[in-house]
Amino acid sequence: MSAIGELRTLRRDGRGGLTADQKQALAKERRRDSKAAAVFLAPWLLGLVGITIGPMVASLYLAFTDYNLLQDPNFTGLENIQRMLGDERLGKSLLATLTYVVVSVPIQLAVALGLALLLDRGIRGLALYRSVLYLPSLLGASVAIAVLWRLVFGREGLVNAFLGLFGIQGPAWVAEPDTALGTLIVLHVWTFGAPMVIFLAGLRQIPRQYYDAASTDGANKWQQLRKITLPLLSPIIFFNLVLGLIGSFQSFTQAFIVSNGSGGPADSTLFFSLYLYQEGFAGFRMGYASALAWLLLIIIGAFTALNFWASKYWVFYDD
């Protein structure tokens, strides 16, 4: 309601009711308010409908067609789903993605939490450390870093130069099927800044008295961590876990750049979204790619639901 409308309401007559005239004016005012709201909402609404909901609905339809980008789609029923069942590369890509998510997300959270605990002890120059440690999060998803990664983990890269100091000849990390996924996991762990900052904020919320009381009772640091910090921080851990899972399931850029778009060597870094992209844009199977996109949505949904279910058993809400 606009300010003028509000003033009008205040200028009601003393008897507590409104005259017919006033009622009409008020209704008109409300209509105008609604119009203003619609105008202000329009840019967001247009974006939501045009860029998110519209394409989503379209892709749901395309998932059941043989759309190839160049010709009109034909409805093919469940053919795309049948195709998924016999798709060997889909299996490989699911395996690579799951390995990546299951390994990198917990490690990243552990690193983020560990650093947050260190930083929370009120060391000098905290703001500086926090910024420096947050930096990789800003860079990690960028093309430049992925390119750099190729060089750092190349046969003649920094990592092998370092190992060379100890007389170890390391492999060409990004170029071997056994180690390529590992380098991407390291890259993901390295971007621990965002969860770390959230952990830091969470740690600040824990009342100091609890620790004072605990140490009076003779609890050591480890016991304090386990009995006070972790339970009270568990909602934040849960939050970071859910966001981390959703984000890493959709990873694309790193694998695309590090493998030159191939998901190689030998499909070892074929992330789900990269496979989906290859099918849609390189193979002209946009119908199948749309079906894959919905499969990814279902998988992420299932993992998130599982998380919420499991959270009943370990997340502790203070209030």
Partner: peptide, 16 residues
């Protein structure tokens, strides 16, 4: 919103 969705849909589907 529904109309806009339908519009976006028809635009994106009718590529050719």
């Amino acid at each position: 919103a529904l109309a806009a969705t339908a519009l976006a849909l028809s635009v994106s589907v009718a590529g050719c």
